[in-house]
Write a protein that binds this DNA or RNA. Structure first.
Lengths: 246, 246
DNA sequence: CGAAAACTTGAATCAATTCAAGAGGCGTGG
DNA sequence: CCACGCCTCTTGAATTGATTCAAGTTTTCG
């Protein structure tokens, strides 16, 4: 099995064979499986491992006192959760599965060793953190300033383009194995309104979402509705430049 | 002048005299002043320097096509903007001043040298990045899931507690040198509604904001209204632990 | 096959926006 | 030094986008 993290990081920087071996080893040492809708880490816990998602979808969320929750990220295979455990003692949010999920647990010490041994890996992981931050910023704009229609369309675009970048789009279709409630929790909207908005987009012929699969017949058209600009995903291979400098 | 960045980082980790000298040097090499309401960097630019704020307030924002904008962070003295310039080529957002501002420009190369020379400094800056991310996540919750009343109260609490942590609160009062429009742009609300909400909080005796100064006579009471929990600011001195490990 | 979860739709309600108009403060230039 | 224009703040009234409540349908899964 090709490690999806290696694949992702290589989009950014060249990794030596030693790097890859180290990563591959780290990613197979301790594999854990989770069912759908389970917490991987709860808010307030003190994590000791970093979770590398090998398969399935995960979300980052906070639960409020009144029962509502806000999903803050969707994490896909190859994504690394909680790099922050190095520095922040307690989780200020939770991670939960949206589908059955396989993760590799990488201990703090091991990751520390890897980072010490290899500055290139360090920077590759830093890049990962910064791209995540860029996505968070765009979500802030999305939730703060866009209409429901734009908001829904925008998030669907993001999910589509993120997957396209890692070769997970075929025939204008990608996976979307989440519920409308979860989409609503990510968008700061009610589930009912998300449902109505999806219908609008559907009857307009912009999307076709069923069987956990999202089809976007004309991505440019949906992007126009969403006023979506993929720049913030930093999908261009900026590592070329970086690599030359090191 | 005591460098506010050193002060902040020392809350997290111990810095050697050499570290401090280096930082102090970096922070005085190239000083630039800006007027109120000026862009420090525009969206799309390719920055070459990191900006260290020495005095004044700055915000991070994105402007939308329809003219509305979303402010994504408030940056105070000691805050470092754009650590991401190392890795992301183009700015996917802009930085603007909210008051007259003094900035130290630190060149990419110099910062690179500093990071190479000192892993402790690297981690201290990484911590800075992660705390920023934690604040972004909380903003997402705030904008996505809280009522206007809670939202306004929550942001005021954040601003108050952040300043308290660096000794900028006296007699339950701190600086708040921004306009209601800017507050609205940060909260994803209209300026009119922010105005009404502030009035509510004012007549309830929870806040007193005038002359660019915010007074919160009973912070616990306002925090209760906002359902504010300062954990996400990671103000506790977690560096103690970290320092022991290195 | 039956129960639970997910989706769908309508109707009533509400929170927040928009529009509009006026008051107050500030800086600049005549 | 006053007048003018601009920005900020304030408030009311009308409107709207989104929520809530409620009920029914479809899908999923054990």
């Amino acid at each position: 099995m090709m490690n999806p993290l290696i694949r992702k990081l290589e989009r950014f920087t060249r990794l030596s064979d030693a790097d890859k071996r180290l990563l591959q080893q780290a990613a197979t040492a301790r594999i854990v499986n989770y069912d759908t809708h389970q917490d991987i880490i709860a808010e307030g816990e003190e994590p000791t491992d970093v979770n590398l998602i090998l398969g399935g979808w995960v979300c980052r969320y906070k639960q409020l006192a009144d029962g509502s929750r806000q999903i803050m990220s969707f994490l896909l295979p190859g994504d690394l959760c909680d790099l922050n455990i190095f520095l922040l003692r307690r989780m200020d949010h939770a991670l939960a599965t949206l589908t059955p999920v396989t993760v590799a647990k990488i201990s703090r010490d091991l990751l520390q060793q890897m980072l010490n041994a290899d500055p290139r890996l360090t920077r590759a992981l830093w890049w990962e953190v910064l791209v995540t931050a860029a996505i968070h910023r765009e979500w802030l704009v999305n939730i703060g300033r866009r209409t429901a229609r734009e908001r829904v369309a925008h998030l669907l675009c993001e999910i589509y383009f993120r997957q396209e970048a890692v070769g997970r789009v075929r025939d204008a279709r990608c996976e979307l194995p989440i519920t409308q409630v979860e989409l609503a929790d990510a968008l700061g909207l009610s589930a009912v309104h998300v449902n109505r908005t999806l219908r609008e987009l559907r009857v307009a012929g912009l999307i076709d979402w069923r069987d956990k699969t999202l089809a976007i017949p004309d991505p440019a058209a949906l992007a126009a509705v969403a006023r979506f600009d993929p720049d913030y995903l930093h999908l261009d291979f900026e590592g070329e430049r970086f690599d030359a400098e090191c």
